[in-house]
Design a protein around this nucleic acid. Structure first.
Lengths: 190, 190
DNA sequence: AATCTTACTTACTAATCAGTAATTTGTCAA
DNA sequence: TTGACAAATTACTGATTAGTAAGTAAGATT
C-alpha cells in the first residue's frame, strides 16, 4: 500500500490540471489514480463522486482568487498594474501547453456537468467579473483607461476574450493568444 | 424498419446541434439514434466512426461559410454591415438556449478529440479569422472602423470574444452575451 | 494491550461507450 | 418478376465508466 503525500491537495492539483487539459467529461478517476500510483477506489475515498471532486477544485480556486484580490500586493496596485496582474493569470496558464481556464472548460461542457458544479462555475465567473468591472471603472475614473459604454459590459468582453483566446491557442498556437492580449491593452489604454 | 428522411443530412443536423449543446465527448450515437427512432448501428452505417461524423459536420459548416462569403449578398455589403452579418451568425446561435459555436466547443475539448477532427477545427478557425481580418482592414481603410494595432490581432480578439461570450451566456444568461456584442461595436465604431 | 481511525486494496456492479458482423427489409430498375 | 442495391436490424464485443462493499494494514488514541 503506497501512500499519497498530502493526498487531498495532490488529487486536487491533478484534477485541476486535467480539467484545464481535457475537461470534465474528458478525464476519469483512472487517470488520477494511475498518475498517483494508486487504485481508482483510493480517489473515491477522498472524493466520493466526480461532482464532489469538481466542486472542490472550483471552491479552492475561488478561495485562492479571493485571497489574492484582498491582499495588499494586488489591492494597492494602480489600475493599469491591476489589469496586468489579471491578464498575467491567463498568460501563466501556459497557452503554449494547451491549457485553458477552468471557467471556459466547464462552461463549454456546461450542459453535461452536474448541477452542483454548474453553480460553482457560475459563482467563480461572477467573482471574476465583479472584480474586473471595479478595476475598469477605477481606471477610467483615474483617466488611464478609455472605453465607451458600461464597465460591466467591458469587463464581460475582456473576460470572454481571454477565455476564448486560450482556446484559440490550442488550434492556432500561443503566438495568436499573445496577439490578442496585446490587442486588449491597445483597445483599453489611452 | 422505419426509414429516416434525408438520412445523412438529418444526422448531420442532429450531430451539429449536439456538438453545440454537449460537446464531442458529451454526446453518443445512442443520443442521435434515439432522437431519430432508429438503432445505434443505423448511424454507424452512414458515419462509421464518431470521428467521421465530427469531420463531416465541420466540413459542411466550412462549405456553408464559404458559400456565404462568396455570395454577393455578403460580398457587396459595406464593412459595417459585414460586421453585423458576422455577429448575427453568433447571435442566431441562440445563446438563450445555451448553444455555443462549433469552434469553441471543439477547442475546449481539443486535447481529447481525434487528430483528423483537430485539423478540421483548425481549418475552420483559420477560415473565419481570414475573412474577419479582411473585413476589418477594409472598414478601417474606409474610415468607418477605428482600432489600433494589426487587423489580424483585432480579428483574433473579436472571434475569441464572441466564442467566449457564448460560453459565458450559459452560466450568466443571454443578456450578458448581448452586452458583450454591444461592447464589441462600441470598441470598433467611430 | 485493545480499540478506533485513516488510507488504502480487492473485487465487484451496472451502465454506457464506440464499433462490427451477419442478416433482413424495402425500393427501384431492367 | 427478378435481381441489385441501399438502409436498416439483431446481436454481439471489448473497453471504459462512475461508483460501492468488504476487507486490510498501519498508525494514533485510550
Amino acid at each position: 500500500m503506497s501512500k499519497i503525500k498530502n493526498s487531498k491537495r495532490t488529487i486536487l492539483n491533478l484534477a485541476e490540471a486535467l480539467l484545464q487539459d481535457k475537461g470534465f467529461n474528458g478525464f476519469s478517476y483512472a487517470n488520477i489514480a494511475a498518475e498517483l500510483g494508486v487504485k481508482n477506489a483510493a480517489i473515491h475515498y477522498h472524493y466520493p463522486s466526480k461532482e464532489d471532486l469538481g466542486i472542490a477544485v472550483m471552491q479552492r480556486y475561488r478561495e485562492r482568487f479571493k485571497l489574492w484580490i484582498n491582499n495588499s500586493r494586488v489591492k494597492d496596485l494602480t489600475p493599469e498594474a491591476k489589469l496586468d496582474w489579471f491578464l498575467s493569470i491567463y498568460i501563466n496558464m501556459r497557452a503554449d501547453q494547451g491549457k485553458i481556464c477552468l471557467v471556459g472548460s466547464m462552461e463549454a461542457e456546461f450542459n453535461s456537468i452536474p448541477d452542483g458544479l454548474q453553480s460553482e462555475v457560475q459563482a467563480l465567473h461572477k467573482d471574476l467579473l465583479t472584480w474586473l468591472q471595479a478595476a475598469l471603472a477605477e481606471g477610467r475614473d483615474a483617466g488611464v483607461f478609455t472605453f465607451k459604454g458600461e464597465p460591466a459590459d467591458k469587463a464581460a468582453l475582456i473576460l470572454s476574450t481571454v477565455q476564448g483566446a486560450l482556446q484559440m491557442a490550442r488550434a492556432l498556437g500561443a503566438k495568436k493568444f499573445h496577439g490578442v492580449i496585446q490587442q486588449i491593452k491597445l483597445d483599453l489604454l489611452k
